[in-house]
Computed example of a mutant assay.
Amino acid sequence: MKFTSEKRSFFGYKTKRSMKNDTVWKYANKIANRVQLANVIIFIIANFILFHFTSETLAFNILMIFFTVASILIIPIVELCINKKFDHDGNLK
């Protein structure tokens, strides 16, 4: 099953801007996936480093703060990328 904005699926990056059309939606999801993958890789590396050099409690707290901030930052990063490539109607610039 292919998840697209037309089907209004549960999955995917969805903002008012990303739902303009399928082209914008696919681009936004591609960028969001890349940003999230980078976040996960950094999280895994930080996990090994922090748990090796600090206490479990401190490492856990730092990782949870990082994960929360990184997850929230996906939205402005993707919206900036959409803004650079598409106009407000969802057409390529």
Rank of each mutant, 00 (worst) to 15 (best):
A59N: 02
V69G: 03
M64V: 15
G90F: 03
E56H: 14
S71P: 09
T54G: 07
R8H: 09
L37F: 11
K84N: 15
M1C: 04
I62G: 07
L50N: 04
I31P: 00
V69I: 14
I42F: 12
D22N: 15
P76S: 05
F67T: 07
T68C: 13
N61R: 13
V24K: 00
S9G: 14
S55G: 15
L58K: 07
E6L: 14
E79P: 08
V69S: 01
S18E: 01
E79R: 13
Q36M: 15
A59G: 10
K14M: 07
I75G: 03
W25P: 01
K26S: 13
I65H: 08
K30V: 05
I45S: 10
M1E: 10
E6D: 14
N39C: 06
F53D: 14
F43A: 09
T54V: 12
I75L: 13
V69M: 08
I77M: 10
L58P: 03
D87H: 03
K26A: 12
L63R: 05
D87E: 14
L58E: 08
N39I: 01
E6G: 08
I62F: 12
G12P: 00
V78M: 04
I82S: 00
M1A: 13
F11A: 11
A38Q: 10
K26W: 08
F48T: 12
F10K: 11
R8S: 10
V78Q: 00
F11P: 02
V24R: 01
N83W: 09
I41W: 11
I49T: 14
I74G: 01
F66K: 02
F86Y: 09
L50G: 02
D87T: 04
A46L: 10
V78I: 04
V35T: 08
A70I: 02
V40W: 06
V35I: 06
S71F: 13
S9V: 11
I31F: 00
I72R: 07
I72A: 13
W25L: 04
F43C: 05
P76V: 05
D22E: 15
R17Q: 14
L80M: 11
I41T: 05
L80F: 12
N91F: 06
K30T: 10
V35Q: 03
K85N: 05
T68P: 00
A38R: 10
C81T: 07
I74Q: 02
I82Y: 03
H88D: 14
G90I: 04
N91T: 04
T15M: 06
I77L: 11
N61G: 10
L50K: 06
K7G: 09
